[in-house]
Design a protein around this nucleic acid. Structure first.
Lengths: 253, 253
DNA sequence: CGGGACTGTTCCACATCGTGGAACGCGACA
DNA sequence: TGTCGCGTTCCACGATGTGGAACAGTCCCG
């Protein structure tokens, strides 16, 4: 294992402070170093903003700099980490690619995907952004929005991606209504010919959609909504996985 | 300004990564250090978990350790920030020190205190951990626990701190029952001779106690529970402050 | 297919930097 | 007033971190 002694020691000091504010002597005891060494490390960490002294006292605590460094990284990373095992299970269960997206303005932003075990599959969309109306994830996210927000989306010109893309606001309202009832939404050949999908939303603490998971695949073998061959079973699996993710987030919160 | 060169450099590297994943060469350019130096710093940060390499790639990004260090601090820091004005008010209102503690296993961990305006006062306990049964805060936190949890606590040997420390499980159960009814708990000379206190719990979203606030002072002048001279008024003030804190947390959540 | 360019990684001679024991100043307490 | 324990500072010393150089691997272009 590579090591820089001072960095190792600095992190030992930071970990000691992770439990709450402490003085030099207590930190020295915990990390088993002389007080002078600990004092110097603390002073260096204070200079970096990683540690700060309590006002009017001599105890030290974790500083804003660490919060700042961690802050840019946290939210999506947690969601991806919590969601990943569910995507793996879904891909195996359905034989199709399973993905995660988060809302970003009026688009969905694909942030993770577990590929299909099938040799014939839809490519990885991670990193791509697509408007709500052409994706199953977008429709279920809209289903979790307030009507005013839905109307704001529908008020703008909606791009037609294929001959089958739905851009009529009245038809979209009806699909959003159904997604609210069903808990999932389907699309077929609307973003691109030959690609179908079904999605369910991941709910935040106030019921808002913080993301959605979907399964998608080539239309020639992907079940349709009304397919007696298994469409409902795929939708149920996606809804169940989304519910497990929502529950995990609440426990983690 | 105190400095440990390796710590300065490590934080420069972390800041470079704060914008998103980067390779060794780009980090070296940004922090103006040789690649071998940056490679060694990155390896040390990887060893600490503060940085990680992207799976299958060579770019580095901020790691979970920083998120963990920052996360451990944020909830308590928020709680401390929200609670502080209430502690200041309580100290002025009662003339005694007011403090905040959070549960930490079967102990209370004192994380903040507003000192008494009185020249004769109990010292600052911030940073100290004490078992539940010797503190008023511990008793109200237990009162917010499920019975199974209370029994787990009572099943262990309980340390006697003074001649007046209650260690009889039956007596403690009765006190916890009363705390559930009253919404507060008193202690007198049980942790240390000459110190009395009264506490109320701060409730989390599911009703569990995420912390407790207390007022404490020297027993010779601190009101007792049944003191016609004002015990109930002090308890009421602590309960009211705890309720305001709980409400603020719900609004902030 | 081979060479060049660029990356990340590793090595090691060297001297700079971090170490830690000791001492000091300060505040609290009996 | 003296003692204790804290946090802070000093400095001789040697252990550790440095950074130039070389290497291995990958990608791109002719």
């Amino acid at each position: 294992m590579s090591r820089v002694q001072s960095i190792e020691r600095a992190f030992a000091v930071l970990s000691a402070l992770g439990d709450g504010p402490l003085g030099v002597t207590v930190v020295a005891e915990r990390v088993r170093l002389p007080k002078s060494t600990v004092a110097r490390l603390l002073a260096a960490l204070v200079a970096e903003g990683a540690v700060e002294q309590l006002p009017g006292g001599t105890d030290y605590r974790i500083g804003e700099r660490l919060v700042g460094l961690a802050a840019g990284v946290q939210p999506t990373r947690s969601l991806v980490a919590i969601t990943r095992p569910q995507l793996v299970d879904l891909a195996l269960l359905t034989g199709e690619a399973a993905g995660l997206s988060i809302p970003d303005g009026f688009t969905v932003h694909y942030v993770d995907q577990e590929d299909s075990p099938n040799p014939v599959a839809v490519r990885d969309w991670t990193g791509v952004r697509l408007p709500f109306h052409v994706t199953s994830a977008g429709l279920v996210i809209l289903a979790h929005c307030r009507n005013a927000e839905v109307e704001r989306f529908l008020a703008q010109p909606l791009e037609r991606f294929t001959a089958l893309t739905v851009t009529d606001p009245a038809v979209l309202r009806e699909r959003i209504r159904r997604a609210r009832v069903d808990g999932f939404a389907w699309t077929r050949d609307e973003f691109a010919e030959g690609i179908s999908s079904v999605a369910a939303a991941i709910a935040g603490p106030d019921g808002e959609a913080i993301g959605a998971i979907h399964v998608h695949g080539p239309s020639y073998r992907f079940p349709a909504a009304d397919d007696p061959g298994g469409g409902q079973a795929v939708a149920d699996a996606v809804v169940a996985a989304a519910a497990r993710i929502t529950a995990s987030l609440r426990r983690a919160g």
